[in-house]
Amino acid sequence: MTALINVPAKARRGDIIEIRTLTSHIMETGFRHTADGALVPRDIVTSFTCRYNGTEIFSADLFPAIAANPYLSFFTVAKESGKFEFEWTGDNGYSSSASASITVE
């Protein structure tokens, strides 16, 4: 699915940088019913991880109360040039990934 990632393209070694991610997902809670009374099955993203050159630097568990199209923002220290890899997994075998690169001077 579509994702929007905001990672600074360049940073100085030791800088604290903000990473912002937004992904497309309906986040159906599993608590709602249709007009004829049938339960709408739960369909949410359950976990998110971010790896910086292969090392996990941030992860989060997500729950039904989180709004559709989850937005997560977090901070890390720019250590070396390389790649951030993002992965979202969820109900019904949902899996989505994205990546962004950074140059550290």
């Binding site: 929007l4 905001n6 912002r20 937004l22 992904t23 497309s24 199209n69 937005y71």
Partner: peptide, 14 residues
């Protein structure tokens, strides 16, 4: 204002 936090942009990409 920020295109990376505006969820409408996900639809624009689609």
């Amino acid at each position: 204002d920020d295109d990376t936090s505006n969820p409408g942009m996900l639809f624009v990409l689609d």
